[in-house]
Nucleic acid binder design. Structure first.
Length: 202
DNA sequence: GCGGAGATTTCC
DNA sequence: GAAATCTCCGCG
């Protein structure tokens, strides 16, 4: 794995890619590789579950009420990390998409662990592969993503995404997003994308 | 300032 | 099914 990731420049997803609409990016990110480099070592996973957030109709989006200090990064151009703290104990990792001023993002909900498994296991305190990164809070813990990563450029070394094997439409399931019941009309938007049959989804 | 609620996870 | 636990945000 480490060897395969030595020369990845041409696989690195560009700022131009992230500046598409959140829905498009959420679908396209399925199968992409999330690469995390930290002092403890490199951890890598394949994205198997995403959710799109954004637009004037989407009450579930943090940016819906306008820009605040927390959501400031969401209103910048796509290609940067938006990390927030939730329920007093967990972090969620998002990818800012669209153009400056849009206020949209894609939540990474689950990845399939591919490299750095020992590091992830130690951070998560479990050996069970399907429990390492099968949820937004879990994968942040496994990859040691915290608010210190808010605003990080996704073309930088510490955190980046590489295009992976193409995922065809027949392998993709779309469903409503999780835990957004409070969001009136937006709660039924089918903006959650899953790789069909993956045991690593949340 | 205060209080409510949240893109969750875990354990009883 | 509820607790853990803390920041953000709206209201005054």
């Amino acid at each position: 794995m480490e060897k395969a990731l030595e020369n990845t420049k041409e696989l690195l997803l560009s700022h131009q890619f992230y500046q598409q609409q959140a829905l498009t990016v959420a679908r396209q990110l399925l199968g992409a590789l999330l690469v995390r480099r930290s002092p403890a070592g490199m951890t890598v996973g394949k994205i198997v579950e995403t959710e799109a957030y954004g637009g004037p109709e989407d009450k579930a989006c943090h940016a819906w009420k306008g820009m605040t200090e927390r959501t400031r990064i969401m209103f910048g151009p796509g290609g940067y990390a938006y990390v927030y703290f939730i329920y007093g104990m967990y972090h969620c990792f998002n990818i800012v998409t669209g153009s400056e001023g849009d206020g949209q993002a894609v939540l990474i909900r689950a990845i399939e662990p591919l490299a750095g498994l020992e590091i992830m296991s130690a951070r998560r305190n479990t050996d069970k592969l399907t429990n390492l990164c099968s949820g937004p809070g879990k994968l942040c813990q496994a990859l040691a993503i915290t608010r210190a990563d808010n605003g990080v450029d996704l073309c930088s070394d510490q955190l980046q995404l590489l295009s992976g094997e193409a995922v065809s439409d027949s392998q993709v399931i779309q469903t409503p997003r999780k835990n957004v019941d409070y969001a009136a009309g937006a709660k039924l938007f089918p903006w959650r994308f899953i790789i069909k049959g993956s045991p690593f989804v949340s």
